[in-house]
Design a protein around this nucleic acid. Structure first.
Lengths: 132, 132
DNA sequence: ATTATAGATGAACAAGTGATCATATGTTCA
DNA sequence: TGAACATATGATCACTTGTTCATCTATAAT
């Protein structure tokens, strides 16, 4: 990679005549275009961002970590986190909507668990990065 | 703590006499305690949440994905994302503070790149989950 | 059928966040 | 030295998000 035609290479902001953005002053046009070519579709990007956003909260992370050792019900989680059951329920809904957790009913009680193995690996990998 | 006796919750089940939480109505005491025992320290937990929060934004994700193919300077990224350079700079600062990206200076220009391999794997793994 | 339990859901508000603008810094070149 | 360039930073504001309270649904027991 690294086609270094850079270094004092700029002879002007490249008029470029783009339709929607004509203000651009970009130095490595090639890299920008390669990035554009390999860009992820907006739908995936948004879902990815939503997923990470859901992981970006200590309470939800603690829920996921607790569930990585086995299923638990809402009031267990509330006891563990020391927050209200309603609060837990709201968090669980977000996690459920993003397919990070799933539940099964047994009588009155709903047992939550991680939806798949990706979730565990995602959290573990993040933790690895944080701890280095 | 919160000595709340919410909802007609009279004479809670499980007297239990826990030191720090006496309001808890929890069903699987053992699971809660095991979760507590394996809990991650608050410092790590917060850093982890901050890291994921930083990944929870389409613009920042696009920056990281673009950088995974090689270093780029601020104005390249601004051109690619079609947002202001100031905006890019703000995003880069967050990513830098969390050790997700690093930069090197070459004359006037600052080249940004991913800080380490974890970052790339983190994004890739998330994408894998989203796409299944 | 009535009551109790376990949880879900909606509204409302404080706190946090992203985008933008103006200004400040650091680097190169004339 | 000073102007131009590339980027950083601070302040502001609109918007989003987490938490809480109150209400609602579903299941089980009486």
């Amino acid at each position: 990679m690294e086609t270094n035609k850079d270094k004092t290479n700029q002879e002007g902001p490249l008029p470029h005549a783009d339709e929607d953005t004509c203000w651009v002053r970009c130095i490595h046009q090639d890299r920008v275009e390669e990035a554009r070519k390999n860009a992820v579709p907006d739908r995936d990007l948004q879902r990815l961002a939503d997923t990470y956003k859901a992981l970006g909260d200590p309470s939800r992370l603690r829920i996921l970590m607790a569930l990585s050792r086995g299923e638990m019900c809402v009031c267990d989680l509330a006891a563990y986190l020391e927050i209200s059951e309603s609060g837990v329920s709201h968090q669980l809904r977000r996690l459920r909507d993003l397919a990070l957790v799933k539940n099964r009913r047994d009588g009155k009680i709903l047992y939550y668990s991680l939806d798949d193995d990706h979730v565990f690996r995602l959290v573990a990998l993040g933790l690895e990065h944080v701890r280095e």
